[in-house]
């Protein structure tokens, strides 16, 4: 009898498996997502129950998701872009429709999200809403005698060198609102130019344009800045954990809101793990799982009601649909996206 080396065993087994199961990816899910959306604290149980192995690649920006998919994202099964780029992803053909009859709690999702045009095309849904939040503003408690309530604080020379602003096209949204232009997702060229002017005037006051969550935390903890915008619920908790008191606020000029959803990459609907995973993410397990890890609000308030404490439920504004309605939810910019991004680059290039 011939000796069987471990390598031989592996080869034979995988060959046999390949013959028996044509869909070799069965039992494996590959995610392209944000940190925290596939946290072990709630994914481990899913893996144990279903036998599906979940692996995640983390991205730092939504554009990274597009870039990876545009470069041929064949290895990913599920992605989690924000609501401003879902439309583009659908129209670029990177994803396939979701059969909502297979999503158990679909009807529990906020109607505001289900009705969004940017997750649908030709009467079919392409995204399952998952989490949401505000691009709120935040200040260090001990730095202000009178708490700021307006965007004016970010343009006030008295705060020179103590201001941080998100290094993103969102800066254009902020400046436009400060200028009194509330149609931030449909700005004209003149309005964008005015926003650029405002940002150039503000630039000498700015300590740093921050780009990652950890970086903003470092800026507060290192005593570099006192006021900034922030991904509500996320960085403030990390900063508080370092013993620094900060307060989030929605300014008089209002704030942007975002919603992340799960989308199925083209060719992955047949993966036997896809729908069980989506259902888990929309259930109490996934919704409270992500809320506990990232501090974001979730898309299924029914699940949230059941698995959150009263305190958390209120803190994440799950009890208050008016809060959600007031936010300026990110809209797809379509072919105007380049104009926004280049306007923001031109501020930094000055």
């Amino acid at each position: 009898m011939a000796k069987t080396t471990p390598l031989k065993t592996i080869l034979t087994t995988s060959l046999a498996t390949a013959v028996a199961l044509p869909a070799w990816a069965e039992g494996e899910l590959s995610l392209l997502t944000w940190e925290g959306y596939a946290d072990d604290s709630f994914i481990a149980a899913f893996e144990a129950e279903t036998g599906c192995r979940v692996s995640a690649t983390y991205v730092g920006s939504g554009e990274e998701i597009i870039a990876k998919m545009a470069a041929g994202g064949g290895v990913y099964d599920l992605i989690t872009p924000a609501s401003d780029i879902t439309k583009l992803i659908i129209e670029a053909g990177f994803v396939e429709p979701i059969d909502i009859s297979r999503i158990d709690e679909w009807e529990n999702i906020y109607p505001q999200f289900r009705e969004l045009d940017n997750i649908q095309m030709d009467g079919e849904y392409y995204a399952m809403p998952y989490t949401w939040g505000a691009i709120a503003f935040m200040y260090r408690d001990d730095a202000f005698e009178t708490p700021p309530t307006s965007l004016a604080a970010l343009f006030d020379p008295r705060n020179e060198g103590r201001i941080a602003l998100w290094d993103d096209k969102s800066a254009i949204y902020v400046a436009a609102r400060y200028n009194g232009d509330t149609n931030i997702y449909t700005l004209s060229d003149e309005q964008i130019a005015a926003a650029v002017e405002t940002l150039i005037e503000q630039r000498p006051l700015v300590r740093r344009y921050w780009s990652t969550a950890g970086e903003l935390v470092d800026l507060y903890v290192g005593g570099e800045v006192d006021i900034s915008n922030t991904w509500a619920g996320y960085q403030s908790a990390l900063i508080a954990a370092e013993g620094i008191e900060v307060t989030e606020f929605i300014p008089e000029e209002n704030a942007e809101g975002w919603m992340d959803s799960w989308m199925i990459a083209d060719g992955s609907a047949d993966n036997a793990c896809t729908y069980p995973f989506l259902n888990m993410q929309l259930s109490e397990q996934g919704q409270c799982g992500v809320a506990n890890v990232n501090g974001y609000s979730v898309a299924n308030p029914v699940a949230a009601r059941n698995c959150m404490t009263e305190e958390q439920f209120v803190a994440l504004h799950q009890d208050d649909p008016a809060y959600l309605d007031a936010l300026l939810m990110w809209q797809p910019l379509g072919d105007r996206m380049g104009a926004y991004v280049n306007a923001w680059n031109s501020v930094k290039a000055q």
Partner: peptide
């Protein structure tokens, strides 16, 4: 940095 932004955020390869 501008090149990364064109390949990323601006999606203008």
């Amino acid at each position: 940095n501008v090149i990364t932004s064109q390949f990323g955020a601006a999606l203008d390869w």
